[in-house]
Design a protein around this nucleic acid. Structure first.
Length: 569
RNA sequence: CGGGGUGUAGCGCAGUCCGGUUAGCGCGCCUGCUUUGGGAGCAGGAUGUCGGAGGUUCGAAUCCUCUCACCCCGACCA
């Protein structure tokens, strides 16, 4: 391909709206253009990258035995009402009406549609197992779309759904998919990690996420430095302290703490470390139950874990200032568990805390030297309700936890019979008995992968694409293409030879200054570059430079094609 | 949803507080000449419903009202 025939549109300055480096670079390199919030056009160069990712995903899914389908993007409301998710999915789902005023949605996911296919098409155990997948545009009306295609509203996703007669067979396919995903991300050249995960809104039992590791990642991953354990912090168990609680050594006293509302302020004022301060949170369940949650001052509440408490099973929110005042007679900054007429659930870390500081339920006052069992009753329950932090023991007993940040690019679930039961997807077993199918589902964020790869592979000059997803593998920079017959001939010949060898090559044949061409080829992240100019040609040489190399190296012009073919495989 | 911010040429911005005549700057774009191994130089040129609607005024990018879009932060002060 020649730049003069292609379309590249680079920007020296990124639009002001772009913050994240991958977003800026994708805009600057002309990979994408924004149409509206969370809506992006894939420009020619970007589309080539997207297609590369898609192709690898497709190849590996096929190799793993999945079969491709393509379901409608627009889905009738009836299916979602049947599964009970028409309401549950909420405002994230884009709902639309047709001319007959019938309800539809633009599909945010396709469990309902595929389950409908399965119940119509699959009648016998002889037809199972089967794994259907598609690569298709989804729409989720995100609360806050951001970071370009990283969290867009419309995005490209590979979603697969498997159907089985037994849980054991589902688990086999689940492992098969984990292996396929591992091959996919390895082939894409990404640094990634599979981690145990929460199942969230989709439901089911086992679940793993695949994260591309990057500082800018929106998710935190806890992993053990001494074993293979890795989990999303939403899920990672914060183990109960092994040491017991010390006996009380102080008596409880009320201390004026004017103006100190946060743990940091109280800690600084009283010169007590945050570990010996107890943080009190008041939450209200959707069924009206009010609850106090206690945490060590240096710990953070994990809302996913808290949501699993029996009392909060209906879902919960934080109490308003008014509710706190009505119940405890104080503002949020001075609330505490002593004398509070509310059920208390404490994080297990408090099993090892004595002589602590907490709010006094009186504005501007805290209590010090507080002890469970003496100054207040033991909490109704000790539970794991905090985020694991670096330094915590690994839940598997081997090593300590550390925290990494990651971008979720894949997620696999064991759905079991949730949808098949709700929607009547059954088959007849060997005994002629009707059974609900076991289901798994497996997603990959295809468009997000492009952004994640750039987060992981860039420098101050631009993108550095891994070979597997580069829009072109080789950039030929022809200096003076329109002036020098020798350059033109050498460049045309090399382009033809590499193209014939199946190596996707972009020849910059523009009448541009060298600096412009170099800058554009670097910005767009093409991994291999060959410079063709009269200067080198005089000595029968071209120059090769990998995008990560600091300097170029001369290669014989006559053997350039074979040299590159051998090098690039 | 709550809070904050921004909309002026393709991109980045100034001008708005304190209303005034042809609305500017850099980059990009077009033409010509020169230049040609790291985002060229000179000369000339084109491009604006100042987000939209309404209002105030002799006069509105600027003031007022409404509205739309986009961005950021928060949703863990406790």
């Amino acid at each position: 391909m020649r730049v003069s025939q292609f379309f590249i549109s680079t920007l020296k300055e990124a639009p002001a709206e772009a913050e994240l480096v991958s977003h800026r670079l994708m805009l600057r390199a002309g990979l994408i253009r924004k149409l509206g919030s969370g809506l992006y056009t894939w420009m020619p160069l970007g589309l080539r990258v997207l297609r590369k990712v898609e192709a690898i995903v497709r190849e590996e899914m096929n190799a793993a035995g999945a079969v491709e389908v393509l379901m409608p993007a627009v889905q009738p409301a009836e299916l979602w009402q049947e599964s009970g998710r028409w309401q549950v999915f909420g405002p994230q789902m884009l709902k639309i009406k047709d001319r007959h005023d019938r309800d539809f949605c633009f599909g945010p996911t396709h469990e309902e549609v595929i389950t409908d296919i399965a119940r119509r098409e699959i009648r016998s155990y002889r037809q199972l197992p089967v794994n259907f997948y598609q690569i298709q545009t989804k729409f989720r009306d995100e609360i806050r779309p951001r970071f370009g295609v990283m969290r867009a509203r419309e995005f490209l996703m590979k979603d697969a759904y498997s159907f089985h007669t037994t849980f054991e067979d589902l688990q086999r396919e689940y492992r098969n998919m984990v292996d396929a995903y591992t091959r996919i991300f390895t082939r894409l050249g990404l640094g990634f990690r599979a981690v145990a995960a929460d199942t969230g809104a989709i439901g089911g039992t086992g679940s793993h996420e695949f994260h591309v590791l990057a500082e800018s990642g929106e998710d935190a991953i806890a992993y053990s430095t001494g074993s293979e354990y890795a989990a999303n912090v939403e899920l990672a168990e914060a183990v109960a302290p092994s040491a017991g609680r010390g006996a009380p050594t102080q008596s409880m006293q009320k201390i004026a703490t004017p103006g100190a509302h946060t743990i940091e302020e109280v800690s600084a004022l009283l010169k007590v470390p945050a570990e010996r301060i107890v943080k009190t949170l008041m939450v209200v369940a959707n069924d009206g139950t009010e609850l106090l949650l206690l945490l060590r001052g240096d710990h953070m509440l994990n809302e996913v874990k808290a949501g699993k408490l029996a009392a909060l099973a209906s879902g919960f929110r934080f109490a308003s200032e008014g509710e706190i005042r009505a119940r405890l007679g104080t503002g949020a900054g001075s609330m505490g568990p002593v004398g509070a007429n509310l059920t208390i659930v404490a994080d297990r870390a408090l099993l090892a805390v004595s002589d602590f500081v907490c709010g006094a339920n009186a504005d501007g006052f805290h209590l010090a030297g507080v002890n469970f069992g003496r100054d207040l009753p033991e909490p109704a329950e000790y539970a794991d309700i905090r985020n694991a932090v670096a330094g915590d023991p690994s839940p598997d007993g081997k090593g300590k936890l550390d925290i990494l940040r990651g971008i979720e690019v894949g997620h696999v679930f064991q759905l079991r019979a949730k949808y098949s039961t709700a929607m009547g997807a059954t088959y007849l077993d060997e005994q002629g008995q009707s059974q609900p199918m076991e289901m798994g589902c497996y997603g990959i964020g295809v468009s997000r992968i492009v952004a994640a790869a750039i987060e992981q592979n860039h420098d101050e000059r631009g993108i550095i694409f891994p070979d597997a997803m580069a829009p072109f593998r080789v950039a030929l920079v022809a200096i003076g293409y329109r002036k020098s017959e020798a350059v033109k001939q050498a460049a045309d010949a090399l382009l033809a030879a590499l193209t014939a060898a199946g190596i996707e090559t972009l020849l910059d044949d523009r009448d541009e200054r060298p600096g412009v061409m170099f800058a554009d080829m670097e910005l767009t992240g093409i991994p291999h570059r060959v410079t063709i100019g009269d200067r080198g040609l005089k000595n029968g040489e071209l120059e090769y430079q990998h995008r990560r190399d600091a300097k170029s190296q001369p290669i014989p012009a006559a053997e350039a094609a074979s040299w590159l073919t051998a090098r690039l495989g």
